[in-house]
């Protein structure tokens, strides 16, 4: 589904070129649950942003279901991004001025989903995450774990093919974290491809495959041993 070939990402400083990612080759199949790990500054988030098309590579190739992304017009690019990806962030990034209900609904508005259908979809999501009673609250009235649940609900309501998560449990304590990770696993079992960035080995164990980055390059790429969990 995702195929990255010899991809570089660098910043040109005054006298030198600073590589954030170097010569990345990566394939992610449909239904995979990939975890990107590595120390701070290794390029994990950069790679995730490039996969999610929030950022462009400096060189290299990115094929998304055989669409050669960097040859497409930006309008077509954002069209693809809209349909393929959902994002979950470490800092939740909910819109403070919108209620739980409206936050979850927002992606549907951008996809021009008709009102009735929107209502049904949001109701289903609220139900699934046990948030019906909280639908009229604003983000600052929720705990961190609840906010992240809203974040996840918002990410998946548009039925993205790939869910991208950047340290989704970084701000949560372990019980809340487990709840989110369980939902990820469920989603993966239902067929959603997931790519997550994390420091946490325990979180990584929910996934199927791990790549380890160091200094912008892929150091290791291996499958998770299920039995250990």
């Amino acid at each position: 589904m995702i195929e990255i070939k010899d991809l570089d990402k660098y910043i040109d400083a005054k006298f030198q070129r600073l590589f954030l990612l170097k010569a990345i080759d990566l394939k992610v199949e449909k239904g995979d649950f990939l975890t990107i790990m590595g120390p701070s500054g290794a390029g994990k988030s950069t790679l995730l942003n490039i996969i999610g098309m929030l950022d462009n590579a400096s060189s290299g190739k990115y094929l998304l279901d055989n669409n050669d992304i960097y040859t497409l017009k930006s309008k077509k690019q954002s069209e693809l991004a809209k349909n393929y990806f959902g994002f979950v962030f470490q800092a939740y990034h909910l819109i403070d001025e919108l209620t739980v209900y409206e936050n979850i609904e927002t992606p549907l508005l951008y996809r021009k989903v008709p009102g009735k259908e929107r209502k049904a979809l949001v109701a289903e999501m609220l139900d699934r995450f046990n948030m019906v009673a909280k639908k009229d609250l604003f983000p600052n009235q929720l705990s961190g774990g609840q906010q992240q649940l809203v974040g996840v609900a918002r990410a998946i309501i548009g039925k993205p093919k790939v869910l991208l998560a950047d340290e989704p449990t970084g701000n949560l304590h372990s019980k809340q974290a487990a709840e989110v990770m369980n939902i990820f696993r469920e989603l993966n079992e239902e067929g959603t491809t997931i790519v997550q960035v994390t420091h946490d080995e325990h979180n990584a164990s929910y996934g199927k495959r791990i790549i380890e980055l160091a200094d912008g390059a892929i150091e290791r790429d291996y499958l998770v041993e299920r039995e250990k969990v």
């Binding site: 999610g52 990034h93 403070d96 992606p107 951008y110 918002r154």
Partner: peptide, 16 residues
Amino acid sequence: SKEVGVRKVLGSSRSS
């Protein structure tokens, strides 16, 4: 800026 970022990630076009 944060709001703009989030909305864009959620699929908002620049014109909207």
